[in-house]
Amino acid sequence: MARVRIGISGWRYARWRGDFYPPGLRQADELTYAAERLDSIEINGSFYSLQRPTSWERWRNSTPDGFVFAVKGPRYVTHLTRLRDPREALANFFASGLLTLGPKLGPIVWQTPADLAYEPELVDAFLDLLPRTTAAALELARDRHARMRGREVLEIDADRPLRHAFEPRHPSFDSAAFAAAAAARGVVIVLADSAGTWPAIDRASDGFAYARLHGDTELYASGYSDAALDRWAAWVRGELDAGRDAYVYFDNDARGRAPHDALALRARVDG
């Protein structure tokens, strides 16, 4: 049966303290608090730098059974090297410890910059490198750079499927050619709601659906109105009716709206 997971992108924001997080809550307990109210969180720290194995282990142990993390792929791959020669960087990423999340490891999202246009040969080669199982990710991780030695994790508890989502920000990706290339490799295209800043590509896939909500009327800042939340609830129900799992993450964190909007959307979907 298809299911939906609704969460937030990141969880450590000063603006949320005393609002979503009650006064006096320790920062160390914020993930546990959020995970008791939401069933998924998108880890975005992994976009900025490789995380330590101890961090992945702590995040796993701070969340309940059945919880799932989505993980944002590193900007070194998507923004700095712009998908070129990514094998070693991907190996470093998968060796960094995210595989220790085990059954709590959900989709991995790859977000490319707004000035990176669709180049079929480049993008298709990148998609071909993405491992489709945790066992394949482990094999790729063995090719990590020597500097990773001593702070890598090269083991898995079980072989599981891996899901990948791709969030392009250049309008050239809104094409039948890219949609076909992604679908052929089991990669879904993220539906990004960004107050009109980047293209909103809504193309159904055979596997699952992934939406990132960056702000209804103001990027990263505005909350979602009742009418907007109703529309997103209808989108979620449509995906579930089609037999697709749906992942929805609110990234409108600047004014603390993300967790409240996530809870409000969950109430609509469940209601």
Rank of each mutant, 00 (worst) to 15 (best):
R149F: 04
G150N: 08
G150V: 06
V153P: 07
V153K: 15
I156M: 12
I156Y: 10
D159W: 14
P161A: 13
L162P: 07
L162E: 11
H164G: 08
E167H: 13
E167A: 10
P168C: 13
P168Q: 14
R169W: 01
S172M: 14
F173M: 01
S175H: 04
F178M: 08
A179Q: 04
A179H: 15
A183G: 09
R185H: 06
R185C: 07
R185G: 05
I189K: 01
V190G: 00
A192D: 02
D193P: 09
A195E: 02
T197M: 14
W198K: 10
I201M: 12
A204C: 01
S205C: 07
G207W: 05
F208Q: 04
F208Y: 08
Y210E: 00
L213H: 02
H214Q: 07
H214R: 15
D216M: 10
Y220V: 11
Y220D: 06
A221K: 15
S225Y: 10
D226A: 15
A227Y: 11
A228H: 11
A228Y: 12
D230M: 01
R231T: 11
A233P: 01
W235Q: 07
V236Q: 09
V236K: 05
V236A: 09
E239V: 02
D241M: 02
D241I: 03
A242P: 02
G243M: 05
R244Y: 04
D245I: 00
Y247K: 01
Y247N: 01
Y249R: 05
F250M: 11
D251F: 12
N252T: 09
A254Y: 11
A254T: 14
G256M: 14
R257N: 10
H260W: 15
H260E: 14
D261K: 04
D261L: 12
